[in-house]
């Protein structure tokens, strides 16, 4: 079992990958809405100023402008914080980009509670549900920097709209960066229990799985970075093989990956599913990692839910 690597910035990985793509693809254009330092699109902007548009605080119209560029033969990346990119701009993403099937890649940083101090207004915990519901939209939630790089390359290579959700905090490297669209990555094999996780919660999934392993519980960990297209066969295989699924996400449990896993299993192969994520509330200011603990995503809670599933399945007393 490989321990998690040192924490790296997903945003830096995104910015550097854009820079790399800029040299290879002259049709690439990048847009930002006055957050280019935070989203790291500034790296592209400094090298390719003619192909970089910092439109200021107009996220809805940034999406329409990106669509217009894409409808005229350009590949457009548009970045902002998740609350603005998916929330403020929702109907512009819907009509200008998705309805037109415009080749626009939205890479949203600052998803979830890990935004920390900026507080509940800026902690976007509904974006996966909003974006996943849009016809034709690809949705990716990388767990680490190598996956961020691979996902940026993957959405660039695939014609059509995409939404990539990044986290503000640096995250430990947990994958080998061999991300594939539509494929879940099995980070631990196991037969007693499955943990499905996305984004920052993948590292926590691995931590709990490794603890359980020491107690003789064999836990499969699936990184579902590719939320849409969703690797339904991998999920149903896991449901059949392990008989129970625990889902971890830094997102509302009402509309996120947990809801997706629960509906997919119940329609195809019903097994007990427990969802760990943000309950039906907004966040608040605080230390990023303390917020995860406060809002129901602590290691202790994850352990409790895991044991509960094992108990329900009769695998422990």
């Amino acid at each position: 079992m490989t321990p998690a690597g040192p924490a790296e910035s997903l945003r830096d990985a995104y910015g550097k990958t854009l820079l790399e793509l800029g040299g290879k693809d002259p049709t690439l254009v990048v847009l930002d809405a006055d957050l280019s330092g935070s989203t790291r699109t500034i790296l592209f902007g400094q090298k390719y100023p003619d192909r970089f548009f910092n439109v200021g605080v107009m996220e809805p119209t940034m999406m329409s402008i990106a669509a217009g560029l894409a409808l005229s033969g350009r590949v457009a990346f548009a970045s902002s914080f998740a609350v603005f990119a998916a929330g403020q701009a929702y109907n512009f993403v819907r009509q200008s980009i998705c309805y037109n099937h415009a080749n626009v890649k939205i890479v949203a940083t600052h998803g979830g509670l890990l935004v920390g101090g900026d507080g509940g207004t800026h902690q976007m915990v509904e974006d996966i549900g909003l974006m996943r519901g849009l016809p034709g939209m690809t949705v990716i939630v990388p767990a680490d920097a190598p996956t961020t790089r691979a996902a940026t390359l993957a959405v660039h290579a695939r014609e059509g709209p995409a939404y990539v959700r990044l986290t503000r905090e640096n995250l430990p490297v947990v994958t080998d960066g061999t991300f594939q669209l539509g494929k879940a990555a099995e980070l631990r094999s196991g037969s007693d229990l499955t943990i499905v996780a996305v984004g920052a919660m993948v590292a926590r999934a691995l931590e709990v799985a490794d603890e359980l392993a020491q107690m003789g519980v064999s836990t499969r960990v699936l990184d579902f970075a590719s939320v849409k297209p969703f690797d339904e066969p991998a999920l149903l295989r896991a449901a059949r093989d392990t008989g129970a699924v625990l889902v971890l996400e830094e997102h509302s449990v009402l509309t996120g990956v947990g809801a997706l896993v629960a509906s997919t299993t119940s329609e195809n192969y019903p097994v007990p599913v427990r969802r760990v994520g943000v309950p039906d509330v907004f966040g608040e200011s605080g230390d990023p990692w303390a917020l995860l603990d406060r809002y129901g995503m602590s290691l202790e809670r994850i352990r409790d839910e895991a044991w509960e599933l094992l108990r329900v399945r009769g695998k422990v007393q």
Binding site: V29, D50, T61, S64, I65, G68, S72, R74, Q95
Partner: peptide, 30 residues
């Protein structure tokens, strides 16, 4: 546009067409 490609941009939800036109004009300039 998806149904009738001679349409340059699907519209209807108001307030989005000028933005798409700005994007097209930027593309033409590039």
């Amino acid at each position: 546009r998806g149904k009738l490609p001679v349409i340059e941009a699907s519209t209807g939800c108001l307030g989005q067409g000028i933005g798409m036109a700005v994007g097209m004009a930027l593309a033409a300039r590039l």
